[in-house]
């Protein structure tokens, strides 16, 4: 065993008293350096911070909520826009299919009984074409030009016109033949025509004999109203015959 005292005493003497003084901590000095607790100010501070924090949280959550609602609405609207765009595209596609020339010609063949004729180049005129004034002095000149132009009509047009004229002539001839031989006309038609002729004759006679009866006030008034309406509508007052 080691004898502690022996070892300790073997050390050189030191100024223990001095060392004690130097190493001793001045408690008062340290304690005074610590700030004193102020209970009232810290409470206020914490309350203030807590209030700010809570109100901030509430504000942020409200703001976030509002933003989310707005975003939802925007999304909804954008979805609607896209839906409409999609529908529009579909409708456009349908329109293109329905109005494709192939489809139209098929439908025309099925439902229309018209034989379409293609336009001739001469039939296409410029839209800004302005006809010249046909003043009295120019009428003669224009007449000549028209005559010259009619000579220049294409053979096709002339052929077409000639055909039409011939057809009309044939029709007139037929009518002439029919009326030149009244015996061939059926009896029913004859009686009807005879009745009409009689009626007209009676009417004419009455006009010549008693013109006053025909020109009644009521009739004149009606006639006047009709003429006023005609003037208003731009229809010629005198019957256009």
């Amino acid at each position: 065993m080691i004898n502690n005292d022996k070892w300790i005493n073997s050390l050189p003497n030191s100024n223990k008293h001095l060392e004690k003084n130097t190493n001793e901590v001045n408690f008062d000095k340290w304690t005074n350096s610590v700030p004193k607790k102020n209970n009232t100010t810290s409470f206020k501070k914490y309350t203030f911070v807590t209030v700010i924090l809570i109100s901030g949280l509430l504000f942020v959550s409200a703001l976030k909520n509002q933003t989310r609602n707005l975003q939802k609405e925007i999304n909804k609207l954008e979805t609607n826009i896209r839906k409409i765009q999609f529908d529009l595209k579909q409708a456009n596609l349908d329109h293109n299919v329905i109005t494709s020339p192939e489809n139209i010609s098929l439908l025309a063949k099925e439902y229309l009984n018209i034989n379409f004729e293609t336009y001739k180049k001469s039939q296409i005129k410029m839209f800004n074409y302005k006809p010249e004034d046909l003043s009295v002095s120019q009428v003669g000149k224009k007449q000549k030009i028209i005559e010259q132009k009619s000579k220049k009509f294409s053979k096709n047009v002339r052929k077409h016109l000639a055909k039409k004229v011939e057809q009309k002539k044939r029709e007139i001839k037929k009518l002439q033949e029919l009326y030149s031989n009244p015996e061939q006309i059926p009896n029913e038609m004859k009686t009807e025509v005879a009745k009409k002729i009689k009626q007209k004759k009676i009417e004419l006679k009455s006009i010549y004999n008693k013109p006053g009866e025909i020109l009644t006030l009521e009739r004149v008034r009606n006639w006047g109203v009709v003429q006023v309406v005609k003037v208003f509508l731009g229809i010629p007052v005198v019957p256009g015959r």
């Binding site: 975003q71 925007i74 999304n75 954008e78 979805t79 896209r82 839906k83 765009q85 999609f86 595209k89 456009n92 596609l93 293109n96």
Partner: peptide
């Protein structure tokens, strides 16, 4: 970038190739 929010909406409009039109604007391919 709106696509971040609108990925779902794209199902209505999947355009992966340009349309082809004629000179008058009639659709030839879509």
């Amino acid at each position: 970038n709106k696509d971040l929010y609108n990925k779902k909406n794209n199902k209505f409009f999947s355009n992966h190739r340009r349309d082809i039109l004629d000179r008058n604007g009639t659709v030839l391919a879509t």
